[in-house]
Amino acid sequence: MDYALRDLLMFTPEVYLRLFIRVNETLGPWLAVVIAGLAVMGGLLVHPATAARRLAFMVMAAGWGLSAALFMARFYAPINWPVGWLAWAFAGQALLLVMTVLRTPPARAGGLPLTVALAVLSVMSLTTALAAGEWAALALPGATPDMTVLTTILMLALLPRGWRWGLLIVPLLWCLFSLLTHWALGLWRPLGVPAAGLVLGLAIGCWPRRRE
């Protein structure tokens, strides 16, 4: 007899999926602001002006802050104590994102890759809702950690390769932590988000920037 991964988790899948519902309920009308922010961010990333693309990264950094303060620190950390520490890492990542884009401008996103990325992210946002059987459990980038991390990893492809690895440490650590958590909970569809984050993070860490 020995510890299995699921023996180390102190909460049930039901409680975990309720976190998404509670975050969405708490945001209430502000959810519209998060969704609008995501839509605007897409437009900013294809904008020819460097300042616009920098602004898109800053909006994403705000999403890291929101995920850390609301989802992680307020709701998730009380049932899973390591998340309290990881929330601080998220706050640090938000600052790092801002400082990085102020020093190096992101490249302009291509229309087709952006469309594909938005389609993939939209599907990924549904995985928690499908697992919970409720639309209210939708996981939005900028409000929930897995989707925030995955979205950011895709955006890092727009930065020079030399800058990416420093910005990939927290996302990759989170993806590993989240992957193991979902595995232990037996939540296979939502597990796809951190799994995709890990694979894409490693790929994007090595991928050259457009026109680099």
């Binding site: 988790l9 102190m10 909460f11 049930t12 039901e14 409680v15 309720r18 009380p78 049932i79």
Partner: peptide
């Protein structure tokens, strides 16, 4: 109470 009563402040749970 291992796993089962760790529900945070969720009113429904």
């Amino acid at each position: 109470t291992w796993r089962t009563f760790n529900v945070g402040t969720d009113p429904g749970l």
